[in-house]
């Protein structure tokens, strides 16, 4: 791929850096791990660029490549960074700047950090408004599996916030 491809790629990454940063931050709280993960994602996006089909949205393709890269990386590392408390769930968030998340966002981060890795990916795509079928296609699972997992997430959500 040539120089113009690189410039287009940089432009595309800049436009969608919020997606890449958010997903990497959800899975990796440590700053160094976060940067390593982001590097792996950028490389995978570059390698997968020729497979991007313009009939799908660029953001959908970025979600797909980013989530699958992170899930494959975690599966290799066998790392399960689970948080036990609300304060554990978001300290990295303050490291990124002076931004203080509001209560709803703290609760969302707490909930996500208590989830299994695959459920985190499902939750992210659900919050983005993707259908169960689209989530299934992105994560290479069945739509039935996605529906079951989302139902479980909803039940866990009710239980979690009943106890707070």
């Amino acid at each position: 791929m040539g120089g113009s491809d690189k410039l287009l790629f940089i432009e595309m990454l800049k436009e969608h850096q919020g997606i890449i940063n958010s997903i990497c931050r959800i899975y990796y709280r440590d700053e160094e791990d976060f940067k390593d993960a982001r590097q792996d994602v950028i490389l995978q996006l570059w390698k997968s660029l020729p497979t991007f089909r313009s009939e799908s949205k660029m953001s959908t393709w970025i979600y797909k490549v980013t989530l699958n890269t992170i899930l494959a990386k975690i599966s290799k590392e066998k790392k399960m960074p689970l948080s036990e408390s609300l304060s554990d769930a978001y300290p990295y968030y303050n490291q990124a700047g002076n931004f203080e998340p509001d209560v709803d966002l703290q609760q969302l981060l707490y909930l996500i950090h208590k989830m299994e890795e695959i459920d985190k990916a499902i939750m992210i795509l659900h919050l983005e408004g993707y259908s169960h079928k689209e989530i299934a296609g992105t994560l290479k699972l069945t739509a039935t599996n996605i529906s079951t997992r989302i139902s479980r997430i909803k039940i866990r959500l009710k239980e979690t916030f009943k106890n707070i």
């Binding site: 990454l13 800049k14 850096q17 919020g18 997606i19 890449i20 940063n21 958010s22 931050r25 982001r38 950028i42 990124a96 700047g97 931004f99 998340p101 509001d102 709803d104 966002l105 609760q107 969302l108 981060l109 909930l111 939750m123 992210i124 659900h126 919050l127 983005e128 408004g129 989302i150 997430i153 909803k154 959500l157």
Partner: peptide, 20 residues
Amino acid sequence: IENFKPSWKQFLQHNSSVDI
């Protein structure tokens, strides 16, 4: 679960300002 959609948008927006 749907109540968290604005929070997710807020999270995305904040992370959009973290420059690559």
